[in-house]
Design a protein around this nucleic acid. Sequence first.
DNA 1: GAGTTAAGGTCAATGGTGTTGGCATAAGGC
DNA 2: GCCTTATGCCAACACCATTGACCTTAACTC
Lengths: 236, 236
Amino acid sequence: MAKQVVPEEARRRRRPTRQGTVLSERLIVETALRMLREHGSAGLSVRRLGTALGADPSTLYRYFDGMDGLTLAIGEELIGRALDGWTATGDWRTDLRELGRRIHGAYLAHPQAAVLTAGRVTGRPREIAADETVLGILRTAGFPDPEAVLVFHAFIDQSLAFAALDAGALALTETSRTSDERQWESTYARLPAEKYPHIAATAQLLAARMNQSAYPVALDMLLASAASRLQALHAG
Amino acid sequence: MAKQVVPEEARRRRRPTRQGTVLSERLIVETALRMLREHGSAGLSVRRLGTALGADPSTLYRYFDGMDGLTLAIGEELIGRALDGWTATGDWRTDLRELGRRIHGAYLAHPQAAVLTAGRVTGRPREIAADETVLGILRTAGFPDPEAVLVFHAFIDQSLAFAALDAGALALTETSRTSDERQWESTYARLPAEKYPHIAATAQLLAARMNQSAYPVALDMLLASAASRLQALHAG
DNA sequence: GAGTTAAGGTCAATGGTGTTGGCATAAGGC
DNA sequence: GCCTTATGCCAACACCATTGACCTTAACTC
């Protein structure tokens, strides 16, 4: 009966596994993250995680109520890492650009976990702290509350949306990913100019661009638009 | 040997399955979409799809080179539906806004499918047509090629990224979704003003906003930024 | 129409997955 | 040192995608 999961704080007996390792929630989450990073998207499975820890796979169900609980724990760890060590400069545009890139980057560092967690509202302390920070930057910059909330919403969701999208691309199997990436050189670059004049005219530029993330550009455009809204408000 | 997949156009012999259905790529994709809508994202498997079609699961490998190929075909269908019946007005900003909303809407109509496919580059005809259309709008509007490609990339990926994010929220189980949605009224609205002044000050606005999609706002901001770039180019 | 070819269906098997119930053993409280 | 039970292990279950071998029959040729 692996139904009852004992919360980490209440854990008393720590019996080493057959191979000698002593398990803990921390150790499991960290090992899972390492496996994801090292062995790619297909790298994480309960069985593999078990053997990596030197434990029977079913043992993990004493720590998490299933694969879902494990991924949530991983996601929580990711959010925490996103803002570690950030400090404000006082310039709202600089600060938001940096924060956006950090969020995006933290998720991309663990694509498989990002795909699963980027869309969820956890309501946990570190997520709340991030929201408070972004809202504070906007309100301090002079955005009136309704405008601040609009921009905040667009900023946060855009960051998470691109994180999930770009993470999804990284999380594909090796073959799927290179197949997707080659499309811009193979299929698109060879389309007939009569039928697809615009693609044909920009084929070089497309091939050079489309395999990167569009997030930096989209982020700068969002910030530029916000800046001109702010200016309009102050002028009027 | 199920390695060779015959392209749909070259298909000559159509032998009915044991249960009498005559297969085709169209039929398979449509059945897959229906299964995704009805049974959720975990509801689609080769086996289930096979039985739903009255065919042996392995038969599907005569039509697609695996689950991946099927996913791409579904994505192609979705993007195709987005553009069905659209006509240009000639005003680039109006046209792009409408296209963006159509893409976003088409994916949200099939959230589970959108989650699977929004990140993929299919390189199939209808996707190519969509790309050609958007690029054409930008180049015709007067964006020089490098700028047109940048804006195109940001526009397309932003639309797909938000489609995937918003679809992900819709694709959650009922309980997870309402739990996520309630966060803004329960957790966030009750935070102490001393520790979270900005969230507390805007709690009402947040609760009203955060459960909608931020895509329309983000789209308008992107278009506004593009417009001012275009203006700057013509002025300089 | 008869003969030939191979497309496109089926069957059976492989090696993977998450998950669970039962068992045994040792950790920690007494 | 005893007793309880938490916790690790084992075996099994029900799925999954994918593949190779087989066989049926549609469609093409003469």
